[in-house]
Write a protein that binds this DNA or RNA. Sequence first.
DNA 1: TCTGGGGTCCTAGGACCC
DNA 2: TCTGGGGTCCTAGGACCC
Length: 439
Amino acid sequence: MGSVYALIDANNFYVSCERVFDPRLHHKPTIILSNNDGCIIARSEEAKQIPGLKMGVPLFQVEHIIDACGVEILSSNYAVYGDMSQRLMWSLGAFTPALEVYSIDEAFLDLTGCLNNHRDDHYSRDDEETLDDLGRRIKRTVRQWTGLPVSIGFAPTKTLAKLANHLAKRRPELRGVLDLTQADGREEALAQTGVEKVWGIGRAYAKLLQDAGITTALELSRVDRRWARQRMTVVGARIVEELRGVSCLPIECCPPPKRSITCSRSFGMIVESVDELREAVRFYTARAAVKLRRGGLAAGGVTVFIQTNRFSREDEQYANAWTTELALPTDSTPELLGWTLEGLKRIFKTGFRYKKAGVMLHGLVPASPLTIRAWDDKAFQRSRRLMETIDKINGKFGRDTLRFGAVSNDESCGRWRTRFAHRSPRYTTRWSDLVQIAN
DNA sequence: TCTGGGGTCCTAGGACCC
DNA sequence: TCTGGGGTCCTAGGACCC
């Protein structure tokens, strides 16, 4: 048998996480909202059946449907989703170390050779586990260990495994597992899959392909290599190869080092004063810096940006960004704050109604003290020890126990802060939010 | 009234070098 | 008529993913 990849992901991940802790939500149409409760970003199966409740739709446009159909709405609760994601990945790690965490709710597994362990021993053919058996065993295990329902696709390439997973979800008779490692059956599966569903084919390429008369994954797998290379770059050429069963994309067990870190948010309410904007930028800088240090990195460049509400027809629009390269990379919050606040001062213009701001760190390098700053830079080394201490305290007693800069006064009261009107408890990351069971 | 956030990769074209 | 050749680096923009 050749290479075997699996793509495993949770069904309706955010909704499933909520259901683990709130069984009342089972069988009810449920949707999860983006920051500020703005858009629909996840839906239960029941919600998907309701016309109009599409992904990415702003909540205010479908409020009448929500009311009429009794849809449960929840703000997103990333503390819970992040923690459940870890549990999911740990569970999958029990099956193979060759695991690539691809997103918050999905992972690729390299299972090549995992099934043939019994070839030379006393097991008879009938006792051998098939990939389908293995898939169901993984499903059962994950369900038992995390409470999450998952779907699984097996195939000789990652792109085909994605496709198999997609079909496993959409064909109820498969009960969540599809094995496309064998050539027979693959053609039919590809013929049944629209080209726009193929991993790596987005809106633009789907249009390009459809204009060329290519509407199914099977047809895409048969296009001329040079044509694909020319019209869709090497990315497209690889997709075609992968659909033919030629693996071009290996499992990446160790994620490559991050190249940039961003922290940005739309505001809960419109902000006009530079003071409030400064408060938001300070908050985003501190968050980005924590991510930076958690990754053991230092930033060699900083960008700060602000923008007005791009959807507003009445407001005059303004968006600007300021970037600087740092002479010496840093991972110190106060140093980064110095730059982002300086940038804000330069791009802020009075008289605009601001809706969003953000901070980006780039030029990331490992934060080994030897590489980022000389040992005799006493002030810097002291600031690093301070950061380390603050991170430790916040790790132990909760985010923002210690923080930089002024606290909001009653006047501004953090109008920029994200709204989560329907957020569930942080069941797994706050003692006070732990589920209690009466006896 | 109300519209998310955080990433990566690839290419073309310009600037610049010898 | 005809105006070198080859390389690197950077950036902006486009495409994609979840």
